[in-house]
C-alpha cells in the first residue's frame, strides 16, 4: 500500500449492557518476514507488526504480540463484555518505528 496506513475496524452497535460482542480490527501491513530474498538474492529486512493493543478509556482490554509467521494485513477479533460506554483506542507497533492509532466509539445502552 503506497499511501497512508489503512485499517478496517468493526465495533457493533447498538450494544446492551452485559452483552458480549466481537470487536474486529484489520490493518494493511506487508508483514515482511525477514527471511525472504528479493529479486537480486538479497535478504529483505524484516518489517512486521510486533504488538497490537486495544484499550477502553485507558483500560487494556486486549493485547497480542505478533511474530513473523503472521500473514500480511493481520486481522484481530476479540470478545468484549459491554459494561460501560467509552472510547476504544487501537494501537499497532512494529519494526522501523511503525506506529498507528485508531479510535472508535463504544456505545453501551
Amino acid at each position: 500500500m503506497a499511501t497512508a496506513v489503512r485499517t478496517l475496524i468493526h465495533v457493533p452497535r447498538p450494544v446492551r449492557q452485559g452483552d458480549i460482542v466481537e470487536i474486529r480490527a484489520t490493518i494493511a501491513h506487508v508483514m515482511e518476514t525477514g527471511h525472504r530474498p528479493d529479486a537480486e538474492g538479497r535478504r529483505v529486512p524484516r518489517d512486521i507488526v510486533t504488538r497490537f493493543e486495544c484499550q477502553l478509556d485507558g483500560t487494556l482490554v486486549f493485547a497480542a504480540d505478533v511474530y513473523p509467521a503472521v500473514a500480511a494485513n493481520p486481522y484481530f477479533a476479540f470478545d468484549l463484555r459491554a459494561e460501560r460506554s467509552g472510547t476504544l483506542v487501537f494501537t499497532w507497533e512494529g519494526d522501523r518505528g511503525f506506529q498507528h492509532r485508531e479510535t472508535a466509539a463504544f456505545a453501551v445502552t
Binding site: M1, T3, H10, T26, A28
Partner: peptide, 17 residues
C-alpha cells in the same frame, strides 16, 4: 463481510485516490 474482507483496505484507498 465488508468489515472483514481484506480487499476493503484497497477499496478504501481507491475511494481516497
Amino acid at each position: 463481510d465488508e468489515t472483514q474482507n481484506p480487499g476493503m483496505l484497497w477499496v478504501q484507498e481507491g475511494e481516497a485516490l
